[in-house]
Design a protein around this nucleic acid. Structure first.
Lengths: 333, 333
DNA sequence: CTGAAAGCGCTTACAG
DNA sequence: CTGAAAGCGCTTACAG
C-alpha cells in the first residue's frame, strides 16, 4: 500500500481487475467458483495494490467472525501452554484468529471477559482448565456460541469437552505406586476441582487396594516449584515418614527433589517423588521424574478439529472427547 | 437473551428505552453526554434484554477495532510471559482485546500472521522479543498501524520500543562477576540478536577490564533447563576449568546447577552460576540463583500506556522507553 | 461464471 | 441533550 495513504478496499481491487466487488469477494472465499483467467487478474491486482481484506467487515456481513476466544487462567508456567500453542497454530492455519482472555489462577472469569468474547462475535469459546462457576456455565449454555471445555471431562459439558478423566489419572497413579511397593504416600493436592478429582481417584483406588488412607496436604494454585520447600518440610514432620510424595505438577515434584537432595536424602531410595504433566523438565531432571503424560498438543488440535467440523455442519454426537493419558515410569518413583 | 433467539441489537435496546439507536451508542461510548434519566432508562433496557454490543460492527463504523495483536515466539516457558500477562490484563481493563499470534522460537513471522493482524484492523501490533526480519520491519514501517517493539531497544524502532539495553546488561554482568573475583567465565549464548547483544556487552566490558576473552558456547533457542547437561559437560572439558557459567536464562542456570550438584560439585565454591530473567525459580532454587531482574510486567504496562496515550492523541516524542534492569546477587555466584 | 443491490450492526457528523 | 441519515467494508441470495 502507499505509505500514508489509506488501505485499499475491495472496490479498488475490483476496479483494477475489471470485475465486480462480488467477484473479488468470491476470489477469497469461494475460489473454486471463478474462471481461472478471472482469478489470475484478481490475484495480480491484489498483489499490485497490496490489498488485505478487512476481516471485521467480512465477518459482519457473513456472520462468521473467524475469531476464537481462548480462556486460560494464566500463561506463566502453565501446564496448558502446549495446548494453547497447538491451538493457536492450528487456528492460524485455518485462517482463524485467537483472542486471548486471562481469568487468573482461580478461574475468576469476570463477566466482562465473557462479554468481550461475545461482543467480538467469537465463533467459539474455548475454556482451558475448566472449573468455571455455575453462573458462567449457565450464561454460556444459553448462548448459541460453540463452547469447548478442555483438559477436564465434565459430567455435562456446556457443548463439547476435550480432555481426560482426572479421576482415572488418580486411580492409575495409585495402582502404579501400589504395585511398585510404596505404602505411605503423601498427597500434595492443589486447590481446584480437577486436582480434587485426581485426589479422589487416588484415594479410592488406594484404599480399595488395601492401603490406609493417605496423608494429604493442600497447596495453593498454581502448583509451583516453590511449594516444594513446604511439601518437603511436611515430609520431615510426619511419623511414620512417607515413602513417596505424589505431586500435583512436575514443577512441584522438581521443587521437592531439589529440597530433598539438598537435605542429603536419596531419591527414590529414601523418598520417591511422583509428578504430573510430563513437562520437558521431568525427563531432564536428576533424577528423572516419574509422572503422568498428557498430550496437551493433541487436546488443542482436537479442539480445532471440532471447530472445523462445526464449520462444515457435521459436529459429532459424542460430546466428550477423551485423549487419555500415560503413566511414565522414570527414576524418581 | 432468549435461548435460541438471535442476539438483541442496538435498535432493540433503543426501542425498549424509548430513545434512538444513536443515544444507546452514546450510552456506551460517550456516557458523559447523556441526561442521567436517559442513561438510567437505557441501563435498565440493556440489563433486561441482555444486550452486548457487537464490537466488530462498532469497530467498522468507528474505525477503531479495539484489538491489539500481540506477537510472541512461543508461550511455553517463555521469559516474555509476565509481559504478556500484564499486557492482556491492562488491555482488558481498557476494554480492548488481545489477539495472540505465535511466530515460533526463531521469529519466523509468516507474512500470513501480519496479514491476519492487519486484516483484523488491529489498532496496534506489539512485537515481543524483537529480532524480526527486515522485510517484516519494512512492511510494518509503511503501515499506519502503531507498532510497539518490546524487550529490546532497537537502534531505529519501527514506531516505539519498550525494553532495556541488552548490551548494558552484558556489561553489568561482566562488571559484577569481575568484582566478585571470577576470572574464567564460560558464556553460554543462545541464538538470536538479543542474546548476542548481551554477549557483546559482556565481552567488551570483560576485556576492557583486563580479563582474557571468555570461552563461549552456543545453544539453540529457547535456552532451556535441558541445555544444562551439555553446558556442564563443556565445563568439564575445558582446561583451565571455568570458574563461573554465565547462562542465557534462569532455566538454563537451573539445569547447570542440577548437573553440577549431581556430579558432586559445590556451588559456588567449585563453580559459580549466573542466570538471566529472575524467574520465580531463581529465588527458590538450592542454591538460589544470582541473576538479572527484568520487570517484564512493567514492559507490558508501559506498552499499554503507550496505546492509551495514542488514543488520547498525545504520543510521547521519545520513541524508546527504557525500563532498565537490576543485578540480583544471590548464592550461586 | 459474474454482477447489482440489499444488508450485516454499529458510529458520527450534522442539525436542532 | 437527542435524532435522522449516511456510511464503515464487506458478503450473499437472486438473477442472469
Amino acid at each position: 500500500m502507499i505509505p500514508g495513504g489509506s488501505a485499499p478496499r475491495i472496490h479498488d481491487v475490483a476496479a483494477r481487475a475489471g470485475v465486480s466487488a462480488a467477484t473479488v469477494s468470491r476470489f477469497f472465499n469461494m475460489p473454486g467458483l471463478l474462471a481461472e483467467e478471472t482469478a489470475e487478474r484478481i490475484r495480480r491486482a491484489v498483489e499490485e495494490i497490496g490489498y488485505v481484506p478487512n476481516l471485521n467487515a467480512g465477518g459482519l456481513a457473513s456472520r462468521r467472525s473467524g475469531l476464537v476466544a481462548v480462556f486460560v487462567p494464566v500463561i506463566s508456567n502453565s501446564i496448558f501452554n502446549p495446548t494453547i500453542e497447538a491451538m493457536v497454530d492450528a487456528l492460524s492455519a485455518e485462517g482463524m484468529s485467537t483472542m486471548l482472555a486471562m481469568t487468573g489462577p482461580r478461574f475468576e472469569v469476570a463477566p466482562r471477559l465473557i462479554d468481550a468474547a461475545l461482543g467480538r462475535q467469537a465463533d467459539a469459546i474455548v475454556l482451558t482448565g475448566g472449573a468455571h462457576g455455575e453462573s458462567v456455565r449457565r450464561r454460556l449454555r444459553e448462548h448459541p456460541t460453540l463452547v469447548v471445555e478442555t483438559w477436564g471431562l465434565p459430567e455435562d459439558p456446556i457443548n463439547y469437552a476435550v480432555g481426560f478423566s482426572h479421576r482415572a489419572v488418580g486411580e492409575a497413579v495409585a495402582q502404579f505406586l501400589g504395585e511398585r511397593g510404596y505404602r505411605r504416600p503423601l498427597l500434595v493436592v492443589a486447590e481446584g476441582s480437577r486436582a480434587q478429582s485426581r485426589r479422589d481417584g487416588f484415594v479410592e483406588r488406594w484404599t480399595t487396594d488395601g492401603g490406609s488412607p493417605p496423608v494429604e496436604m493442600k497447596v495453593s494454585i498454581p502448583s509451583r516449584f516453590g511449594h516444594g520447600r513446604a511439601a518437603f518440610r511436611r515430609v520431615g514432620e510426619l511419623d511414620p515418614r512417607p515413602d513417596v510424595v505424589v505431586c500435583g505438577s512436575d514443577s512441584l515434584a522438581q521443587g521437592v527433589i531439589v529440597e530433598a537432595l539438598h537435605a542429603g536424602i536419596r531419591i527414590p531410595d529414601d523418598l520417591a517423588i511422583f509428578g504430573f504433566g510430563n513437562l520437558a523438565v521431568a525427563g531432564e531432571m536428576r533424577p528423572t521424574i516419574s509422572t503422568v503424560d498428557i498430550d496437551g498438543g493433541r487436546i488443542g488440535r482436537e479442539t480445532v478439529r471440532l471447530l472445523k467440523q462445526r464449520g462444515e455442519g457435521r459436529l459429532p454426537d459424542e460430546r466428550k472427547i477423551d485423549v487419555g493419558f500415560r503413566i511414565i515410569a522414570r527414576e524418581s518413583a
